[in-house]
Amino acid sequence: MSRPNPKQKFALQSIALLTLGVVSVLVWNVLKKTYLSDVQVLSVARVSDPLPNLFGDIYFFLSISFLGVLLGITCAFYLEEWLPETNWVRCLIEGQVSILSGVPSLLYGLLVVTVFLPYSGAFQRTQGFPPAGDLNTASLQVSSFQGDTTLFYIAVLTFVLLVVPRVIKATQEALRSVPIPIRESAYALGANRWQVLTKHVVPLSLPRVVAGACRAMSCALAVSALFIGIYISGYTIQPGQMSGRFALFLGAALLLSIFSSFLSQRYPLASTRHI
């Protein structure tokens, strides 16, 4: 396998830069809000007015997932299409990915609640256990603990661990499912790597890539919903306060997983015919 030519390198680098740019804007937004508002006031506000928070959370959740998915897909394309199978970076990442993507998503939620939150000191800073709706996975933390950047990083870290490996794995499998004779025929017609990728590999694998991304997001949403659910029954001051959020997350998780199954059924693995 030859190395990417300058044009392809440039395209890859611009994708990486773009992703980096979006991440930094997001981080900057959170940093700007740091310690500006009083945590207690906010949590009172959220109890009295849950609706804006609900959409705030979903918005945050979606933007982080979107970035995670984008990062995962880019990473998978790079590993699968550019690095040879024997490259040590590829071996290392693939090893990690196969471990991380095999861990049940529930464990990530437990990891957040039992390790990340206590050790980051999040509970201490908010004096006692957090206000209603905040003991779910870290994905919900930012809008609830508006001022706290550690929680933002916890959320991002959890997503990197939970969503990205799943997306990488699904994307790599989708790319591998593109029949080798199709690639070889396109190359035999004088197409270069970029043309083969954009004209054949991407269109053929796209449904399965999207299906994989939806499945990964569905896992994350489901585990969030579960912790919201546990929290409602255990700690909520005003029962029923969080049920809207619970329903929203659970509903989104279900919808995404159904959509994902639909996609993989509608576009089954292309049959590979060799001679």
Binding site: S185, A186, I275
Partner: peptide, 28 residues
């Protein structure tokens, strides 16, 4: 590769229309 036309044992239809299949190589 453009100097050589290759026909494989089993027909490999590129996932394109008939027209685009034939126009693929000239376009590239």
């Amino acid at each position: 590769r453009r100097k050589i036309g290759m026909v494989l044992p089993l027909p490999v239809g590129l996932p394109l229309s008939i027209y685009d299949n034939v126009a693929f190589a000239p376009r590239t």
